[in-house]
């Protein structure tokens, strides 16, 4: 597994915390969603870096009050064809104003990365070897003309308010 962020593979300082395990005092643990809801009290007043892992189907409202507390939110793609995390990502960015790392985990393939970026993801846990190779070679398949506003820095083009070009 390799973490791709800001155009490069980087060391991952975060650890996925198993359900039921106490978080290290230094933080940098990504809580399972339900485990976080049980453990959150332990972190009142603490500002160690924390993360949460959100499975598709989760109700973001249940962690709404904590969202700014997280440095990493990992959204899961159990299969690449399960697109719920695209909507969750947009909601986190748009509605909950989340500005931390939004990490795609699960089945993350090169052809989905541009879509993920446009929905607000900025970090990708890559397990697929061909995807890793493509990213290392700087190849992210996609288009350079878009018909929707997105969560990425892009620039409006022409008179249509919905058209965008890469920023």
């Amino acid at each position: 597994m390799a973490l791709y962020k800001n155009g490069a593979f980087v060391d991952d300082r975060w650890r996925a915390l198993p359900e039921g395990e106490a978080a290290p005092v230094s933080g940098h643990a990504i809580f399972p969603f339900d485990w976080w809801r049980e453990e959150r009290g332990a972190f009142d007043g603490s500002n160690v870096p924390l993360g949460v892992r959100v499975e598709p189907g989760a109700d973001l409202a249940e962690i709404a009050a904590d969202i700014k507390r997280f440095s990493v939110i990992a959204l899961v793609f159990p299969k690449f064809g399960d697109g719920r995390a695209f909507s969750l990502a947009r909601l986190l960015r748009e509605r909950y104003g989340y500005e931390g790392e939004l990490r795609a985990v699960g089945e993350v393939l090169s052809d989905q990365i541009q879509l993920m970026q446009r929905c607000g993801f900025d970090a990708f846990e890559v397990t697929d070897a061909i995807t890793e190779k493509a990213l290392r070679e700087g190849r992210i398949p996609g288009v350079a003309h878009f018909y929707q506003p997105s969560e990425r820095k892009e620039v409006p083009v022409g008179s249509r308010p919905w058209t965008r070009a890469p920023g």
Binding site: G83, F86, Q114, Y147, Q148
Partner: peptide, 13 residues
Amino acid sequence: RQWSSIHPEFTFL
């Protein structure tokens, strides 16, 4: 048609 073309959020419904 334009808005739905390669919509990043709605390509894996």
